[in-house]
């Protein structure tokens, strides 16, 4: 039985990507053709990203990224498309995610409090009041 393939992110159709003409189109044109970008570069709206991928997940195996495409649309100072680049999963690198986490200050409930904290919460008398 074929398992489900999930389309992820924003995959503009091939035909509309071809229509984007560097040197001619402005941000509004690209927005009309490809829709709102998935993300833009940090603090810099001169670079638009359209990120999409196909993933599948079978039985208890980890979800697997079959393919990934990042469509990069760059604008020059005048706000006109200066370049359209496409990079794929192979262009990326494997990175092991850092396990460190910034502690979230405030009400960190300890285990006992979490477990017994709510036993009384749902007594009908309390909810009904």
């Amino acid at each position: 039985c074929a398992n489900e393939i999930d389309a992820r992110g924003n995959l503009p159709s091939e035909t509309s990507v071809q229509q984007v003409q560097p040197g001619v189109h402005t941000r509004a044109d690209v927005q009309a053709l490809l829709g709102t970008p998935s993300a833009t570069a940090l603090y810099d709206s001169a670079v638009w990203y359209y990120i999409s991928s196909h993933t599948t997940q079978y039985a208890f195996l980890k979800p697997e990224e079959l393919d990934r495409q990042v469509l990069i649309v760059e604008f020059d100072r005048a706000g006109v498309v200066s370049d359209v680049i496409r990079i794929f999963k192979e262009d990326g690198e494997e990175v092991s995610i850092s396990a460190r986490e910034t502690p979230a200050r405030g009400t960190e409930q300890n285990v006992i409090q979490e477990f017994f904290g709510n036993l009384g919460r749902f007594t009908p008398s309390k909810v009904g009041r």
């Binding site: 940090l42 262009d91 690198e93």
Partner: peptide, 12 residues
Amino acid sequence: TILGLNWEAQRV
């Protein structure tokens, strides 16, 4: 870095 946007990674 994972996505391959290396100069964006450097900028950040």
